[in-house]
Write a protein that binds this DNA or RNA. Sequence first.
DNA 1: GTCTATAACGGGATAGAC
DNA 2: GTCTATCCCGTTATAGAC
Lengths: 208, 208
Amino acid sequence: MSDRRTAILEAAATVIARRGVRGLRVEELATEAGVSKALIYYHFEDRTGLLRRTLAFVSNRAERYTTEQSAADVAAEPLRRLEQALLLELQDLPHVRENSTAWGELRASAVFDPALRDELALASVIWVREVADQLGAVLPTAPESALTAGAERLTALLEGLSARWLSGILPLSDARAGMREAIGVEVAHLARSATPSAHGLRQADEPD
Amino acid sequence: MSDRRTAILEAAATVIARRGVRGLRVEELATEAGVSKALIYYHFEDRTGLLRRTLAFVSNRAERYTTEQSAADVAAEPLRRLEQALLLELQDLPHVRENSTAWGELRASAVFDPALRDELALASVIWVREVADQLGAVLPTAPESALTAGAERLTALLEGLSARWLSGILPLSDARAGMREAIGVEVAHLARSATPSAHGLRQADEPD
DNA sequence: GTCTATAACGGGATAGAC
DNA sequence: GTCTATCCCGTTATAGAC
């Protein structure tokens, strides 16, 4: 894959984080990437195609830095690693903010743009499974389905808190505190359901 | 307030739910509302002003139907009422879907449009307090700060789950199950922290 | 592969009649 | 208050040279 193409995708993430999907102008993107407008249409089908590729690019990049970060502390306790991985997205660092903002934008756009849904669903499933795995490292006895459900809740909460933080209605520190507490609560909950024999039988909450 | 003006706001919610803020065309809005484009500019400053008013309109409407629904079951147990109020937003009914979609869109837009932030922050604070109050009815002994934090988590989770549902990456039934379980977990958590030595206290009045 | 120049048009906003 | 008609700018997308 050409250098230019990658440069355009990186620039797209930057511009989306700055202006939103709605505010993305192919011209501004061209300037940001240091190329001409026409080259963007040469490398990508059209505006929507570009967005699709950017979504995949952003989610790969997020996955990459999450994994790197965790690998660096592979010796750390599973719970610490889980917290790190989730709180990583709630930091006021340029590249984190950029990735979170772009991700949020593209997710929101997917509600109205079916072309984005496949990429979004794929990225989402990968992320949930990753978190489920880390939860599994914390709670080896918990059943897979419970881990997935827990990961679903934690990642959805993270997206909700992130959206509030980025739209300026929740201070970052509150978002981080909320996330940290939720992790603790979730782990405790899963631990209780996973080891019913230790204490009294604790059945699942409500029937569907 | 004129009939027309309200009709335009209602139509705006409908069109935003159909096309997104990004896809809202003043012309389509005019058709939907059964008025001319010019009238929209007569009643609202400009496109952004219209969005601001629509945000306030949508959040008022949501508050209204939440309250109505709860009032109808005022005799129900507090926990049931809390669940009802939150799960209300996760239903595949036209007007609910419309409100949730429009709300999500406007929230996402606020990240890049400071003009929307004040309305958004206000609506958000009202909603969190409402949920915190209902949590307080379930757990009279819990301190106000814990209730607010819990409500923050529950509403943020709801927004996260809702976004996933509406973007088609999470089935509605999963979203509802996740929400229901989270409520149970959260209430249990708050109950434990509020009554470290005993449980079942149900008589204390409003904490400060 | 990459550029400059331009076509083509969608859509926000306004003028002015009634 | 409400309409019809229209302006006109910004934006996507393409043509064609190098």
